[in-house]
């Protein structure tokens, strides 16, 4: 939890940026030494390629021939590209299907774990789907949900309900994928929230119950406010992850049917590696990057990420 906490504090500072200027502190140098190893890795494997990516977005690189500088034309094209706007809409739709339900279920599961059980076995079982590789999860659900051979439809049929092509119909495909990913990630999210719950001191609950607060009141007046920094972290990271959905779609629908699941990351992949438009694909990823910064900042501002009520 410690690193997550500091990450929240760190990003929170950038958003608010209102702390008074501090003088140089001798400990800062030691701290710098500690982060140096990861800083080197970060620079070599993340920052440098990212800067290069920015450059590629201004070229017409087709992967195989030398890139030529084309200025902003990739970005101009993007604004006129119906497929891009469709991809953006589909992505936002996915985030809205995914995040609220996943977070709600995760809170419920976490509170239940906190209040009802100490069993490591149950905690382990809850994160089991998260331990599976996403490709395996995608394949399992592809078979489970298959209209002809999948067990879900056999069960529907047994109950006298009509068969549903969960991944084959445009109106069903995205909700089905959102459901698959909630199934995969809800346990992990619950575990993070559970850790946050454990960091709330028991004395606060004692004081509340002495004051005569009911279980419900304690949940809304004590648990939720004190959990807020963890919730911010969970929501911000899961929204970012949700915007970047790729693997489940690559395994199950490949952007179809009729572009119903062609999210931004799939569109970027398609442009880069099937249609040889690496320059244009990189421009889209830069835009996705800007969108994510913007969304994350708004979230942190609304949720007062830099503060804690504890």
């Amino acid at each position: 939890m410690a690193t997550q906490r500091s990450a929240i504090a760190l990003t929170g500072e950038a958003v608010r940026a209102r702390r008074p200027q501090r003088r140089f502190h001798p400990e800062a140098f030691t701290a710098f030494l500690f982060i140096l190893p990861s800083l080197i890795g970060f620079t070599v494997f993340y920052a440098a390629p990212a800067v290069r990516g920015l450059w590629i977005s201004f070229t017409n690189w087709d992967l195989l021939r030398p890139p030529q500088f084309v200025g902003l034309s990739n970005y101009v094209r993007l604004f006129q590209d119906g497929e891009f706007w469709n991809a953006l809409g589909v992505t936002v739709y996915y985030v809205l299907l995914n995040i609220p339900l996943q977070t709600l279920l995760a809170i419920i599961i976490a509170v239940m774990m906190h209040r009802l059980t100490q069993s490591m076995l149950i905690r382990g079982l809850i994160i089991l789907p998260w331990l599976m590789p996403p490709v395996v999860v995608g394949l399992i659900w592809l078979w489970l949900l298959d209209p002809n051979l999948g067990i879900v439809n056999i069960a529907l049929k047994a109950m006298g309900l009509p068969m549903i092509a969960f991944l084959g119909l445009p109106q069903w495909a995205m909700p089905s994928i959102a459901m698959i990913n909630i199934w995969q990630y809800v346990g992990y999210t619950a575990l993070l929230i559970f850790a946050g719950l454990q960091s709330i001191p028991g004395s606060v609950y004692e004081a509340a119950s002495i004051d005569g607060a009911s279980e419900t009141q304690m949940f809304w007046k004590v648990t939720i406010p004190l959990l807020r920094p963890v919730l911010v972290f969970v929501i911000v990271t899961s929204v970012i992850g949700s915007f970047q959905i790729f693997d489940t779609i690559a395994i199950t629908t490949k952007g179809g049917p009729v572009n119903a699941t062609k999210v931004l990351n799939w569109y970027i992949y398609e442009q880069a590696f099937s249609r040889f438009n690496m320059g244009y694909a990189t421009a889209i990823s830069i835009v996705l990057f800007l969108i994510l910064i913007f969304v994350s900042m708004i979230q942190m501002r609304i949720l007062r990420a830099g503060e804690s009520d504890l």
Partner: peptide, 29 residues
């Protein structure tokens, strides 16, 4: 300190780009 952490924050957010990018661009053909 503040400058460093600000710089780090920016590096951090830039890293998001990478996962969007789908991998490091390769060397010249």
């Amino acid at each position: 300190n503040r400058h460093l952490s600000l710089a780090l924050v920016w590096l951090l957010v830039i890293s998001l780009l990478l996962s969007a990018c789908g991998g490091a661009p390769a060397e010249s053909p």
